[in-house]
Design a protein around this nucleic acid. Structure first.
Lengths: 212, 212, 212, 212
DNA sequence: GATGAATGAGTATTCATTCAT
DNA sequence: CATGAATGAATACTCATTCAT
């Protein structure tokens, strides 16, 4: 009956925080942020409503925490701190990585897409990301300074460099735009597809074939 | 002195119904269905809360009415009752038409995308459309018998026929899938783009170039 | 195309008033006063909502008008202005008359019973009828000075006089009370009985047999 | 510091549920179901509106819960599981018991009578009780299998057996009907009588005298 | 007289949030 | 740290009543 050490407490805390966030993310993503009640989350997480408020100030701050964390994980995944140069093989690798992360963090992506569809939320996101000349790919919430624009720059560079390999009439801006459109469509298709599809795999290969 | 004729009443009614539906659509699309209150809609439409309920049974039935009408308009636009054959030029025309309708009915598309992101709603939509082998492009609500699958078939045929013009290694299934992915990405980009972009026009031309 | 005479107008007015009151009474009685909406009444009477307000100030005043009229009719039926003496045959006649009027004005009675079950309404009724020693049989609404207590007195007298015919141990107060209880029960049974029942007839005869 | 035990929680819950139901019953009975607002109930119960909805899904379900419980209590009171035989003394006991329960559960009876006066509600009640040849004494809501018809049968038997003690010309059907009418009238009089009346007591004795 | 569109006060209901234990 | 009873502001919805035509 000795009291728990503060280390144990910390573990419990973190465990619960993770549990709450994961449960919430799943339900936010599937049933929608507004339709998901705190009660619902608490029940499915097997905890009490009150406990949630021990860890998160409000429903909205829970949402923000989830987005923060997810975005950080996604960006981490891309290991951005590199030289900023994308070789052809790295480009293919990059796309395949996106594919993986789409499947792995499907709930997050669903939630993100969902949130971006509301004007006020989208506006807030866009403010968090300067350097995005076309408003393409706004990615986050009141996040910290997130290097989305860095990624965008690297990709942009890739398409500019690619000009050398492609024939005349190649317009990097258009190709970049087409690539972004395609990836957006691919993402949307992927995260709302319930069963794995072999055609998806083939489509991904085709995308690589076209834009590599 | 004497009461209005029933024709006059009908006109008033239809005018108000249109006003309400358009106001609601705009706000549902921009602020989200759940975030938009009936009060908000009424205020912006310049009418009272009560009047809305003279014409629509509930907030949800208002939503359904909007979706019904919009879907009907969109499908009408495509003039489905043709021979079911899509020539190359018709294909281009078709894509350009989609582009126009995306811009013209932006609010509807925003709302549709938004709704489709919620599992239960999406499920309902998908049930309304049989013959859609991949679950692609589910389009409606408890709509009437809607020819979305017909359109899908016509497009599918187009890509199969295209095999003759393309070299070996051409896979109609994959090309169709790629086309759908691209159109989805294009649509998503288009309806959430605030200002018109010349690159969009060029991207559309590129899409036609690639899939024609 | 000559304008209607004021006499014709009056006829129209009275016709409509009757129509509205009868329709309202029917629905108040069957679905309850609160559950019956003005719309409902208007629709079933085949008139507009507005017209109702030409003739009645409010829903409540419509109710009061109905009760007034019905009560007047019922009292009329009893032809009170007699000598105040009830012979044995007149007593039987009186009971049979009640039976008839219960069946003829079933809707009114249903409504009356219903209203009397609400404290505030009942209180208002009781105030309208002084001279009612036991609070029994309160009968009306803000009616004019209605001779319910007169009737009560006549009946009371009847039971007192009856003492002579009955053996010792006969208590007029108790017999009166029993009679009132029985009639109340008979009324309740009668007005909520959908199909005519031969036993009802026999029960009525039994009541007469007992209390004559 | 530590949360309440689940036993404590249960107690609190049950206490509040009882409080809400009793408050609601009182007001439903006196002011009528429709005229009684949730706000009104909450205020008089000294709780918030919201709490009511923690325990009851809706106003209607609160009503149903009240009826269920009351009916169960009333039936319990009659201790139905006996031999199905009613002796003369038991019959007297039975009537006196009814008298007691009328006074003890006055609010319930008022509410019941009130509800039975609305066609749709009455219809629902009647469906809950098969085997009731005359539609007399319909007693409940979507109740469980309630032995009202059992009671009716026992009473019916009593009146049939009584034939032996009574002279010729005795008709059990009519006597039963008369008894039911009388009891209905007695009940109605009793539950809407504000002050206790010695004549009531005498009337009850008279009823026993007549039908024993 | 007659109509029904329009209003808004009132009602039931939901749900994030607080807090005593 | 943990619980769930309790709150009340916000929201959808109803319906008697008004009024321009």
């Amino acid at each position: 009956m000795s009291p728990r050490t503060s280390k144990q407490y910390k573990e419990i805390r973190e465990e619960k925080i993770t549990l709450i966030m994961e449960t919430a993310l799943k339900h936010f993503a599937n049933e929608g942020y507004y339709s998901t009640t705190i009660n619902h989350i608490a029940r499915h997480a097997g905890i009490s409503k009150g406990l949630m408020y021990n860890y998160f100030e409000s429903k909205e701050s829970l949402l923000k925490a989830i987005m923060h964390k997810s975005i950080a994980e996604v960006l981490n995944y891309f290991d951005i701190d590199r030289d900023g140069y994308l070789s052809e093989d790295e480009f293919e690798f990059f796309i395949r990585k996106i594919n993986l992360i789409l499947k792995e963090k499907r709930s997050f992506w669903r939630l993100l897409f969902q949130l971006l569809m509301q004007n006020d939320v989208r506006a807030q996101f866009l403010k968090s990301f300067a350097g995005n000349d076309s408003g393409e790919e706004p990615e986050t919430l009141p996040g910290p300074d997130l290097p989305v624009s860095q990624i965008m720059n690297i990709i942009s560079d890739y398409f500019i460099r690619r000009k050398d390999r492609m024939g005349p009439g190649y317009d990097p801006d258009i190709e970049l735009k087409m690539f972004l459109i395609t990836m957006k469509g691919y993402a949307l298709t992927s995260i709302y597809q319930d069963d794995e599809d072999e055609n998806s795999e083939k489509a991904l290969n085709r995308i690589i074939e076209i834009y590599k």
